[in-house]
Design a protein around this nucleic acid. Sequence first.
DNA 1: GCGACAG
DNA 2: ATCTTGTCGC
Length: 248
Amino acid sequence: MSVPLIQQWESEQDRLRQQLLDVDSEDWQTRPDFSGLERVGGVDLSFIKGDDVNACAQLVVLSYPQLEVLYEDSQMVALTAPYVPGFLAFRETPFLLEALERLKKKQPSLLPQVVFVDGNGLFHYREFGLACHLGVLSGLPCVGVAKNLLQVQGVAKDEQHQSQINALQKGGDSFPLVTTSGKVLGKALRSSDESKKPIYVSVGHMISLDTAVRLTHSCCRYRVPEPIRQADCRSREYLRIRFPAADT
DNA sequence: GCGACAG
DNA sequence: ATCTTGTCGC
């Protein structure tokens, strides 16, 4: 990747980070049962096997706490930016924002009160991952959920990390992801009693880490929070039907 | 040179 | 992200 572009992206992350809010700013967030929360969103992008340009951008809105799909939007898009570790937002955010705009225009009453994002938030090399990026640009509370650990600022998947994972007894148990400087950038969460491998939760925007973890756990029927899982399943289904086997 | 590398 | 079957257990 060209160095100038990376530097431009870095400064853009620095600029947007100044607008990030990492505290609970909504009333429902501080209530024990999240009463007042009625709609949770999920976004994701799915690709066709040998094509890293064309993808299906997906937005779903589920009811809370029932977690039933209220809204679904699948849209084929052509990505322009390449995937560069640490800069995922520049590749995906534009299309996720477009999906939110379509919803706002067609059915504003269904806008989600919080959006689950497939990727990290503050748990990021420069503390500004995809979930933060989408949060700041959309003005919506966002939670970052990564399925794999990103090795950030001293946080590594060593035997120490593995033993902490083994110590997670049941769904809801978690441990902090602490930086070399002692800063907590996220938490590893055992999302259900059945799943051994944790998910990595971090603040995206307009929510505190503890609330993000508690909310995430309350949205998990399986390992991945339902909003993200539905967005993933439905975008794949969309591609499966529209772009069948590319064999002979 | 070696290992890491969200999606 | 995607490439991919079976297997074990409730």
